[in-house]
Structures are given as C-alpha cells and as structure tokens.
C-alpha cells in the first residue's frame, strides 16, 4: 500500500514499515517518528538509525543485545530514545523491515 509521507507517495506494508529501504530519507524518518510519538529526532536518534540501516544492508540480525554491544548506545539509552518498543520503532523510523527476533 501507499502512504503519503512529507509529500511523497511511499510504499509501506500494512504495519507502516517501508517496503523498500532505498526510498527513505531524513524527512520521512521525522514524519514516521512523529506518528510514533517520538522526536523530534536528535543526533542521538540519527546515530542509531544509521547504524540500523547499515546492519540491515549487511543482512545482520538485529537484537537489543547487539545494539547494546555496538558501543553506540547503552540498552537504557536505547529505551529512552525510542520508548514503547525500542527495536520496532527505531526500525520503522529507519525505513527497514520490522525485526523478527525475540531477543
């Protein structure tokens, strides 16, 4: 399905995750963040988001533990930055698919 985000018609799935991560830009990130009740996005948010996009490009599985070990954010900071679902919400804002892991 299509969704209008900052004037662009973007392909998203029924949960609102971008279906093609290359259609992402910072404006779209801000718009999704606002819908999720997060933000405005700061440099700290953006660091996490770029990291997520890098990991996704590499095909690396995402877990809270690996995020905590990345040296980028502590587990606590991650929860503070993206309250209400750190991995799910940050992935949505980063324009990557919903994480499927349980950890």
């Amino acid at each position: 399905m299509k969704k209008n985000l900052v004037g662009n018609e973007i392909d998203v799935n029924e949960e609102g995750y971008l279906t093609d991560m290359s259609h992402w830009n910072q404006g779209i990130a801000q718009a999704i963040a606002k819908e999720e009740g997060i933000g405005p996005l700061t440099e700290a948010h953006m660091k996490v988001i770029s990291y997520l996009r890098e990991q996704q490009t590499k095909g690396a599985p995402l877990t809270i533990r690996s995020m905590g070990k990345s040296g980028l954010v502590t587990t606590k900071e991650l929860y503070d930055l993206f309250p209400g679902g750190p991995l799910k919400k940050s992935s949505k804002i980063a324009g990557i698919p919903k994480p499927v892991g349980c950890i």
Binding site: I64, Y79, L87, K88, C102, I103
Partner: peptide, 10 residues
C-alpha cells in the same frame, strides 16, 4: 526471555 520480550514491545 518473556520479560525482555515484553519490554521490547513496550
């Protein structure tokens, strides 16, 4: 696992 998973879902 259930507790951590819960927190991940908010």
């Amino acid at each position: 696992i259930m507790a951590n998973g819960a927190r991940m879902e908010g």
